[in-house]
Amino acid sequence: MAASAHGSVWGPLRLGIPGLCCRRPPLGLYARMRRLPGPEVSGRSVAAASGPGAWGTDHYCLELLRKRDYEGYLCSLLLPAESRSSVFALRAFNVELAQVKDSVSEKTIGLMRMQFWKKTVEDIYCDNPPHQPVAIELWKAVKRHNLTKRWLMKIVDEREKNLDDKAYRNIKELENYAENTQSSLLYLTLEILGIKDLHADHAASHIGKAQGIVTCLRATPYHGSRRKVFLPMDICMLHGVSQEDFLRRNQDKNVRDVIYDIASQAHLHLKHARSFHKTVPVKAFPAFLQTVSLEDFLKKIQRVDFDIFHPSLQQKNTLLPLYLYIQSWRKTY
């Protein structure tokens, strides 16, 4: 089996927390979720979201995140109150960019949308954001926290390059993509939290790379249903696996070995980020709550012996909000 052949990389499970039942964490995340308004986002309300009498641009960002990046939404709820709305805006910006690729039928249209967001970032730093909910909220975040323009532009530029429907040539190319998107998002989150620390940035770099790799793995069944495969070609070739094997949902050992190798790289990034947690300011830990969902996925895929098409991998963990709150309460990542 794939797991038994390579099992030495995987460390002990961390979500089991001995003695936790003896201490009762304060009510927090679930209460916040219940208090949030929840009407559906419609095209009509989106168009009017920044106008008078609408929910408001902040509510639009929150709803977009809740629907399109639920794990990011849950993590954002546990940030300090003064930072929450800015991170909602930042993550909503990322969602807007991420959904361009799947929402257009022609690359030219995707490039036009990316050009809109490039100009939007430029206009935000000229205090002239367009009348668009996410743009307005992002402008507020930039003004409030003096966010670095370079990180925002890196996210747009990398998403634009990724409009080509090509597999990553190697794991390094996937890591570079993750660094310029997910890690950049974390650098900006640290700025919102008021953290300027080399060790925190180092952790953000590795956690962002782990996030990018896990996202690529999780999306494999969806991409396969659209006749697309984006997994690193070098690892596929190493194990003699073709793109057609993934399109046919082949579950042979060599296919699972490909998934094992890729998942192991995410695991190593996560492990390395945690190896120097004592040197990272505690104030930075809330920015890294996504490690909970990353670890949850890596454990699940290990349990199914790296069968990327196993139905259990597509099921939401209903206990994730609780695990996130516990992680926040324990002040760790």
Rank of each mutant, 00 (worst) to 15 (best):
H206C: 05
G51I: 07
R218L: 08
R91D: 00
Q211N: 13
Y70K: 08
E63Y: 13
R249T: 09
P311C: 06
I213N: 00
L313Q: 00
K118W: 04
K228P: 03
V258S: 04
D252P: 07
D201H: 05
Y222G: 06
D245C: 12
K154I: 04
K253C: 10
S86K: 02
Q302I: 06
V100N: 06
Q243W: 05
I326D: 02
H202W: 05
A135Y: 01
Q315V: 00
V280D: 02
T148A: 09
Q327R: 14
W117V: 02
L198S: 04
Q314E: 08
T57V: 10
H267K: 07
F246E: 02
I195K: 00
S275K: 10
R274F: 00
H131D: 12
I136Y: 13
E191G: 04
S50N: 08
Y70T: 08
A178G: 14
H223P: 03
V142E: 03
Q251F: 13
K299P: 00
L79Y: 15
D164N: 13
F288C: 01
E106C: 05
H206M: 04
I262G: 02
T189F: 13
N170D: 15
F288R: 00
K140R: 13
A287G: 06
W139Q: 06
P130L: 08
R84M: 10
W117F: 07
S85G: 10
M114K: 04
S85C: 11
K316R: 09
Y325E: 04
F88V: 14
L193S: 03
L313C: 08
C75G: 07
F309M: 09
L188F: 05
E122R: 11
Y333H: 03
L111Y: 14
L74Q: 03
L65G: 04
V46E: 05
D305G: 08
E96F: 04
Q265C: 10
G56H: 13
L77T: 04
V214P: 03
D127E: 09
H59L: 10
M153F: 12
F88Y: 10
L97K: 00
V255P: 04
S50P: 13
L247R: 07
L289I: 12
R159G: 04
P133I: 06
Q243V: 04
R330G: 06
T220V: 15
Q302T: 06
L78N: 09
P221D: 13
E106N: 11
T120N: 02
E173K: 02
N170I: 01
Q115N: 14
E158Q: 13
R256G: 04
E63C: 09
L62C: 12
I259G: 00
K143I: 07
V95M: 06
N180K: 10
H269E: 02
Y187S: 01
T332V: 12
C236L: 15
L111W: 14
F288N: 01
D307E: 06
W55H: 15
L320D: 02
K228T: 14
D127G: 10
H267C: 14
H239R: 11
F309G: 05
K161R: 11
N176L: 13
H310K: 00
M114R: 04
E244D: 06
V214F: 04
E158G: 14
V255N: 08
A54H: 13
S45T: 14
P286D: 08
V241H: 02
Y222R: 08
D123V: 00
K196W: 04
V142F: 04
N180A: 15
T181W: 02
F230T: 11
I192P: 01
L324N: 04
A135M: 04
D197I: 01
C236W: 03
Y323E: 11
I235F: 07
F288K: 01
D261T: 06
P130Q: 08
Y177C: 08
V241L: 08
Q302H: 09
G72S: 12
K161S: 14
Q115H: 10
F288D: 00
M114I: 13
L320W: 06
Y73E: 02
G51L: 11
Y168D: 00
N180C: 14
S264N: 06
S86P: 08
F88N: 11
S184H: 14
L322F: 10
K278W: 09
G194A: 07
E244G: 03
V156T: 06
L138H: 02
S76M: 06
R144C: 07
N250G: 13
L190F: 04
F230K: 08
T291H: 02
F297R: 02
K209C: 05
W139M: 08
Y222E: 07
R169I: 10
P321R: 01
M237F: 11
I301N: 00
D127Y: 05
V258D: 00
V100G: 06
V156L: 13
V121M: 07
L90N: 01
L65V: 11
R150Q: 07
H239Q: 05
H131N: 13
N180D: 08
V241Q: 03
S184R: 10
K172E: 08
L65Y: 04
V95A: 12
T215H: 10
F88W: 14
N180Y: 10
D257C: 08
I301K: 01
M233P: 02
H202I: 04
L185A: 09
T189G: 04
I262L: 15
V95L: 08
S83Q: 14
